[in-house]
C-alpha cells in the first residue's frame, strides 16, 4: 500500500503503476455528471483542483446540528464522464481521478500527457469510504445540482483504492 498525501505532485504520481494499492489522505472533491457538464459548458467551477483529487461520487450526507455528516460515499461509474474528463485534467490539473469501472482512450491519453492517474475505488463500499471522511469543508452547487450531484469538499484519511490507469498508458481494464 503506497501512501499519498496532498498535494499530489507529478513526480509522486508518475511513480505509480497500474495495480498499485494506494491510501490517500488530504482534500477530496466530489464531482459527477452535472459537475462535468457544467465544466464542459464553460462555467466556472469555483475550486482549485491543481494537484488535487476528484472523486466520482454521489454521497449521502445529512445535516445534524449545523454540521454535515457523510453517511455513505462509494464511487459511481466513471465512464459517463469520459467526454469531459480529458479536458478537465488538462485545464484544471487534476492529479488523481477516482471512481469505478475505468475510463476511455481520451482520458488515458490525458493521464499520460499530464502525469495523472485513475484510481479504482471499491464500488458499493459506501460505509467504509464514508468512515474515511474526517471533515466536510464545504459544498458547492447544492441548490443547482442536488445533494447527490453537488461538489462536496471532504478531507479524507486512508482512503484506499487501486491504481487502475497509470500515467504510462497502462490500464487494468
Amino acid at each position: 500500500m503506497i501512501s499519498l498525501a496532498y498535494p499530489f505532485d507529478e513526480k509522486t504520481v508518475r511513480a505509480l503503476h497500474a495495480g498499485d494499492g494506494v491510501s490517500i489522505s488530504g482534500p477530496l472533491h466530489t464531482g459527477r455528471d452535472k459537475f462535468h457538464k457544467w465544466f464542459a459548458d464553460g462555467k466556472p467551477l469555483g475550486i482549485d483542483l491543481r494537484d488535487g483529487a476528484l472523486y466520482h461520487c454521489g454521497p449521502v450526507v445529512v445535516r445534524e446540528g449545523g454540521v454535515w455528516r457523510v453517511v455513505a460515499a462509494g464511487p459511481t461509474t466513471s465512464i459517463r464522464e469520459e467526454p469531459y474528463e480529458a479536458a478537465l485534467i488538462r485545464e484544471c490539473g487534476v492529479r488523481l481521478v477516482i471512481g469505478k469501472g475505468g475510463m476511455g482512450e481520451a482520458t488515458r491519453a490525458a493521464l499520460a500527457e499530464c502525469g495523472a492517474v485513475y484510481i479504482q475505488a471499491v464500488g458499493g463500499a459506501a460505509a467504509i469510504y464514508a468512515a474515511t471522511v474526517r471533515s466536510v469543508e464545504g459544498v458547492d452547487f447544492l441548490d443547482e445540482f442536488g445533494a447527490a450531484e453537488a461538489c462536496w469538499h471532504f478531507t479524507v484519511e486512508d482512503f484506499r483504492g487501486v491504481v487502475a490507469m497509470d500515467s504510462h498508458g497502462a490500464s487494468l481494464f
Binding site: G21, C57, G58, P59, V60, V71, A72, A73, G74, T76, V122, G123, G124, A125, A126, A127, I128, A130, A131, R160, V162
Partner: peptide, 24 residues
C-alpha cells in the same frame, strides 16, 4: 483486497445502520 473491503463495509454499515452502498 476488493473482497475484504466489501466485507468490512458490510460489517460497518450493519453496525452503524447506514446505507451499505450510497446508491440506495
Amino acid at each position: 483486497l476488493v473482497l475484504q473491503t466489501i466485507l468490512d463495509n458490510i460489517a460497518l454499515a450493519r453496525r452503524l445502520g447506514t446505507p451499505l452502498c450510497q446508491d440506495t
